[in-house]
Design a protein around this nucleic acid. Structure first.
Length: 763
DNA sequence: GCTGATGAAGG
DNA sequence: TCCCTTCATCAGCG
């Protein structure tokens, strides 16, 4: 059945839109057209990759160029989700050169949730994500700096059809109507209770945004409002009986008007981006990404098991602590407010100090850290953030089956890194005030468990049964190693940075040969030791090589720049006017700012920012700049070279062929970091593919579980510990890295928080 | 309602 | 010339 929707644009009218109940019409036309490019897109009940189901699909294609006319460019078919049709559609996609979807990994989840076996989906070979095509053909500018956001609506509106956003509006309107109707039920229910309307509920409980619509929660907002039990019962019961509406509740006739457009724009995006992808020679790296789609798909479906009772108990602890602190805060200030209300806080400080602060941000509060109000606000902001972002969110996501599922954004980032929400789980626990005091006196990590409010990583536990172990493979300081390697590749190796990771330009204590690192075998000798445990490689002064402590070195050179005299390196410094630096203050202060600045400067940071961020004088900040330059002269050279190259050519290419293109080269200085960050990201992506192959070839049941930038996690199947040395070998074997790559292994049989380091050798 | 600022995290 | 991100909340603007 051919659909003539009310809304058509110059772009969409060139596509024939069908609604079908079975496969016949699709099949007949497909064989008539013999397309090379097809699209698959799902409409689903929500965004949970395991719980939610597809209820409608769009399958379509673009006609081969020779078959197009002025009237028709392609065909799209919408149908209710049924496994039989999907299976036949999948068979057709295999006849195309390319099958695309926008964020296609999500649609692959929905194929599985729609009744297609995992085996069939995991076996798909010609899947390409149009988000990837966008990333590989757009400028390397992050969204923060005004670069493109890759959402289908945004991209199509900008590059394909200014009217692309119109289609969704009708459906959104309809969805809003349904949710409004549900909200009106609550309104009616609340009518008998004076003073407790919808507005008051919104003050008492947090209302989050889902699809730009109000999503009511059970989380407290303005905690001074005491909600009568009766009201709370009415409200909670309403929530249960009236769950937040999703697209499946929208009338099918209205859906039908719009579903085709997503498929059409996705096809159009291929036509728009693909020539640039080819021109920039991005086909090889695109194929890598395509392989990765399936590996990530598998990984996402494993999910991390969470300890729900623990989370619920932490929620309660957090809640009590927040309530307690708020009561103290309101008592002092004499007014009810929340800690994110900057104006109220500014009022307070204006009254107290006679001067109105411009901001009430973290740094302002830190300046008044002896003020109890300042302490309370700082602490409450942290607690509330943790409670809502970690505890509540994990509970919400994991409610379905006690697993936290994350989705990896494969093309979100400019550099090539994966994005995911698992990356922000704090490593450290949050303690009560007493606990923090205890640690101040007795050392970090020393506070006993009764002081602990919440340890995010404690919530993630092993699966159990035959999967009673999680292994974490972590790349040691990989970005700094890659940075060192880039100076080697530029034929100007940075002495200090290289010597942090290998005995660069050192000589053997017996043979006198210089350390070489051109081949794998030569490189592997960096670790060789004498019987007494010191390195066989000797520095110029005859001492055994020890890895340079790059942070101390920057601090040392900063002190030199400030005209300190070195009495004992890293330990004692004297000055004509300033007070001397002893070992303790070197460690606690100078090394700390040296470390912070090392990272800052690698990203292009300057003296002004350093002075602000590290809260030091401009004099010290300037000394850090020159201290850094003296410590890593060739890193400085590298940064200048890359920027100059980008100024000249408008692009640079990382170690895996990923191109960073800039139409406007004002921010060329950023590319130096893109190359380092992006090469490491592609390195990780490569591991995921290769380790996946290894596990398949050996019929392993161990499952890749998660990735966080420089770490890979595996859910280990009982008895398969033999693979650890192989994974380590795969990860440490990086063709282009002349600086040694080192991988550490940690294991837990209980929770993520309790992982312990294990020594192994690469196979 | 949308945007930008702010601030809590990860590397 | 401080890099890449995620997620939540609020003030200001239209």
């Amino acid at each position: 059945m051919i659909i003539k929707p009310k809304l058509e644009t110059d772009i969409t009218k060139l596509y024939e839109k069908h609604w079908v109940n079975d496969f016949d019409e699709i099949n007949t036309l497909f064989h008539k057209d013999e397309p090379k490019l097809c699209v698959l897109d799902s409409e689903t009940t929500g965004l949970h990759i395991i719980k939610d189901k597809p209820f409608m699909w769009v399958f379509g294609w673009m006609l081969p160029k020779e078959k197009r006319t002025d009237e028709i460019k392609g065909r799209v078919f919408a149908f209710d989700s049924k496994a039989e049709i999907l299976l036949q559609v999948i068979a057709l996609t295999k006849k195309c050169v390319m099958t695309v979807g926008h964020n296609v990994k999500y649609d692959l989840h929905m194929l599985i949730n729609g009744g297609i076996s995992e085996k069939v989906v995991y076996g798909l070979k010609n899947i390409t994500d149009t988000m990837g095509l966008c990333r590989f053909s757009f400028d390397a500018v992050s969204a923060r700096d005004g670069g493109d956001v890759l959402g289908l609506k945004k991209v199509s509106e900008k590059y394909i059809d200014p009217k692309a956003g119109e289609f969704e509006k009708e459906v959104k309107k309809e969805l809003r109507k349904i949710n409004d109707a549900k909200r009106n039920i609550l309104k009616e229910l609340l009518k008998p209770y004076k003073g407790w309307g919808l507005g008051k509920i919104k003050e008492a409980y947090k209302v989050k945004k889902r699809n730009e619509m109000d999503y009511f929660t059970k989380e407290k907002k303005q905690r001074w409002l005491k909600v009568p039990e009766e009201i709370e019962n009415v409200y909670f019961k309403w929530m249960e009986e009236n769950p937040f509406a999703d697209y499946s509740e929208v009338d099918r006739d209205i859906m039908m008007e719009y579903v085709h457009s997503d498929g059409i724009y996705t096809l159009e995006l291929v036509e728009f981006t693909y020539p640039t992808v080819l021109k920039r020679k991005q086909k090889a790296i695109l194929e890598q990404e395509n392989k990765l789609i399936i590996e990530l798909l598998k990984m996402e479906r494993v999910g991390m098991k969470v300890d729900m009772p623990y989370l619920h108990s932490c929620f309660k602890k957090c809640e009590d602590e927040i309530q307690k602190l708020y009561e103290e805060l309101w008592g002092i200030v004499g007014e009810y407010f929340t800690v994110s209300q900057g104006t109220v806080i500014a009022d307070y400080f204006e009254k107290k100090l006679g001067e109105r602060p411009e901001t009430t941000d973290k740094s302002y509060l830190k300046k008044h850290k002896d003020d109890r109000v300042s302490q309370l606000i700082t602490r409450l902001r942290r607690l509330e953030k943790w409670q809502s972002t970690y505890i509540s969110r994990i509970i919400e996501v994991a409610q379905y089956d006690n697993h936290f599922y994350t989705q990896y954004g494969q093309f979100n980032t400019v550099s090539g890194r994966l994005g995911s929400d698992a990356q922000q789980f704090p490593k450290e626990r949050i303690l009560t005030e007493e606990g923090e005091l205890y640690e101040k006196e007795n050392g970090e990590g020393k506070a006993p468990i009764e002081y602990e409010i919440f340890s995010p990583r404690r919530a993630f536990i092993v699966e159990g049964g035959n999967y009673n172990k999680i292994a974490y493979f972590d790349l040691s300081q990989i970005e700094l190693r890659a940075q060192a390697n880039y100076t080697v590749l530029l034929k100007k190796p940075d002495l200090n940075l290289c010597r942090a990771y290998m005995p660069f330009k050192c000589t053997h204590y017996i043979t006198g040969e210089e350390f070489r690192f051109d081949t794998k075998e030569e490189r592997a000798r960096w670790y060789e030791k004498k019987e007494d445990g010191t390195s066989v490689w000797l520095l110029e002064n005859g001492e055994s090589w020890t890895p340079t402590d790059v942070h101390s070195e920057t601090s040392h050179n900063t002190l030199m720049a400030l005209a300190f005299k070195c009495v004992d390196k890293y330990k004692q410094y004297e000055h004509e006017k300033e007070s001397p630096v002893d070992e303790k203050s070197f460690k606690k202060f100078w090394r700390y700012i040296g470390k912070m600045f090392n990272f800052m400067r690698n990203y292009g940071g300057g003296a002004k920012k350093a002075s602000e961020a590290l809260e030091v004088s401009m004099e010290i900040a300037n000394a850090l700049v020159s201290g850094w330059s003296n410590t890593f002269p060739e890193v400085s050279y590298y940064q200048k070279q890359v920027a100059a190259k980008v100024q000249k050519n408008s692009y640079a290419t990382n170690m895996y062929g990923r191109v960073y293109f800039l139409s406007n080269t004002d921010k060329a200085y950023k590319v130096g970091n893109y190359l380092v960050q992006g090469s490491c990201a592609d390195m990780l992506k490569g591991y995921v593919i290769r380790i996946g192959e290894f596990l398949r070839e050996n019929n392993c049941k161990t499952l890749p579980l998660a990735n966080i930038h420089d770490e890979l996690q595996f859910l280990v199947y009982k008895g398969e510990e033999w693979i650890f040395p192989h994974i380590k070998r795969i990860m440490e074997d990086v063709e282009w890295m002349q600086v040694p790559v080192v991988v550490d292994l940690e294991i837990t049989e209980t929770t993520w928080a309790d992982k312990k380091e294990v020594q192994i050798k690469a196979a």
